[in-house]
Design a protein around this nucleic acid. Structure first.
Lengths: 151, 151
DNA sequence: TATTGTTATACTCTATAACTATA
DNA sequence: TATAGTTATAGAGTATAACAATA
């Protein structure tokens, strides 16, 4: 058992704030992504590939926290726009390696710049020190939660 | 313009971490809510009413960050389970005031206790000081984002 | 005319089960 | 048998437009 949060407003709970701010962060990207005609997940795939290079779909799925079967249509869409390319891994022909195309690289570079701008605005209410502290705490919390379970 | 996050992995961006941790927080509640046969939004309504008492649907919508038209089916469901009750505001007959029923109060009390347990486990990877700091930073960020825009 | 609540609807995101091909 | 990817599909969550009742 535990101390019930009798007095604490529900909206002040850390879990609720995380869920709500995560949703708000997503919305702050929305118009930028619409301008590029990309979904949040497509955006995540492009920036992840930009940072990590060639990845298998399974690994990619872990990185963007999307179930493997739901990665399929995401990569399908990106492939139809010529932003990424699937190739069979010669070492293990079950695997499909995902690469950015030249066009994909160009788009990902532009997205990264826009994303940095959006993040700056989103965090503008905090001082630089607070922004750093928040990022550190979120990274530590995320690491602690993914330590044992893969997802 | 801005500094593109050339080196910074996309997964380390604060916005991405917020979105991901928010989603993970939601999943950590999932099994508890399933046991009560409640959706996350129904859960939010019950705990918000528990903390704030009687509310109009418009206000409730703000508190749980759900569009008013999407609040309708949520309250419908809770009403059909006899957990909340709608009454017309005599002072302004357009408004519907939402109250917890006796059964709703009992369920909300149990939910609050479970929620505190889940939050404790979710944040276990941080020290108490870090947990407090994180909550403060999230509250400040949230306040800064809702300062001007209502939603 | 503006606001509260509502309906209908469509679109995205996520989750359940089973299948193909490779290992 | 186990794994990578896939398909089909259903559900939850969210967003767009228009409407009724009341102020």
């Amino acid at each position: 058992m535990s101390m019930p949060d009798q007095a604490l407003p529900f909206e002040a709970a850390t879990g609720f704030l995380l869920a709500r701010l995560g949703s708000m962060a997503g919305r702050s990207w929305h118009s930028m992504l619409q301008a590029h005609e990309l979904s949040p997940h497509e955006h995540g795939v492009l920036l992840t590939l930009r940072a990590a290079g060639r990845l298998g779909q399974q690994t990619l799925s872990d990185r963007i926290a999307v179930d493997p079967r739901n990665v399929v249509p995401i990569v399908d869409g990106l492939e139809s726009k010529n932003l990424v390319k699937r190739t069979v891994d010669p070492a293990d022909r079950r695997r499909r390696l995902i690469d950015l195309t030249a066009k994909g690289h160009a788009v990902a570079d532009r997205l990264a710049a826009s994303a940095a701008d959006i993040e700056r605005d989103f965090l503008a209410g905090l001082t630089p020190t607070e922004q750093t502290k928040l990022n550190q705490l979120l990274q530590k919390l995320h690491a602690s939660l993914t330590e044992h379970a893969t997802l």
